[in-house]
């Protein structure tokens, strides 16, 4: 993989930003709505996908999950992050270039929902029972709402002056 300084720098900056966002978000208690959160770090994953490329976004995501788990997590939280992150990343990779740039939010909603599917799958595997599937409607709702919010944020950033940092040339 041939990698330019510019590309490497942008990836490093985005990794740092996503880790920071993730850590700040983790400081807020989520007591009222059991473990449901916005997933603000997903904004950075989307931005990496749009500004650099899909493969690089995968690297940024993987680094963020590994670093966040190394600093704060447990093995269990790592497993949940990987399951959710992998599912969301796969879906967004498949969809990102099939949609118009004004539909980034749609891609993000799919990402949010599949993130939660991945986490339910992980919960079923870890607890050894399919009981977690009972949470499906709640997690679909939260996935859609959180995905919508992060998607709108990413879209807003794409249509902002920050886009001059983009490496990817638009078709």
């Amino acid at each position: 993989m041939k990698i330019s300084v510019r590309r490497l720098t942008l990836m490093a900056v985005l990794t740092a930003v996503s880790l920071t966002v993730f850590v700040i978000e983790a400081q807020f208690p989520v007591s009222a709505v059991g473990g449901i959160k916005l997933g603000l770090a997903n904004i950075v994953t989307l931005i990496a996908m749009l500004f650099i490329g899909r493969r690089e976004a995968g690297i940024v995501l993987a680094l963020r999950i590994i670093l966040a788990s190394a600093f704060y997590g447990t093995f269990i939280s790592f497993a949940f992050s990987v399951a959710g992150g992998l599912a969301a990343y796969t879906v967004m990779c498949l969809l990102i270039n099939r949609f118009d740039r004004k539909q980034i939010w749609v891609v993000s909603v799919f990402g949010g929902v599949f993130h939660n599917f991945g986490q339910i799958a992980a919960a079923c595997v870890i607890t050894g029972s399919p009981a977690a599937a009972g949470l499906l409607p709640y997690l679909i709702v939260s996935g859609i709402l959180a995905g919508f919010f992060t998607g709108i944020c990413a879209q807003r950033l794409w249509f902002s002056p920050l886009r001059k940092f983009s490496i990817k040339s638009e078709k």
């Binding site: 007591s31 059991g34 919960a123 870890i126 050894g128 029972s129 009981a131 009972g134 949470l135």
Partner: peptide
């Protein structure tokens, strides 16, 4: 603990580190 109360069939509280499910 933070998950809160459940009251409807199909709902569950999961404690993944303890492999525990209350359903």
């Amino acid at each position: 603990v933070n998950f809160g109360k459940i009251s409807k069939p199909g709902q569950s509280v999961i404690c993944a580190p303890h492999r525990l499910t209350v359903r």
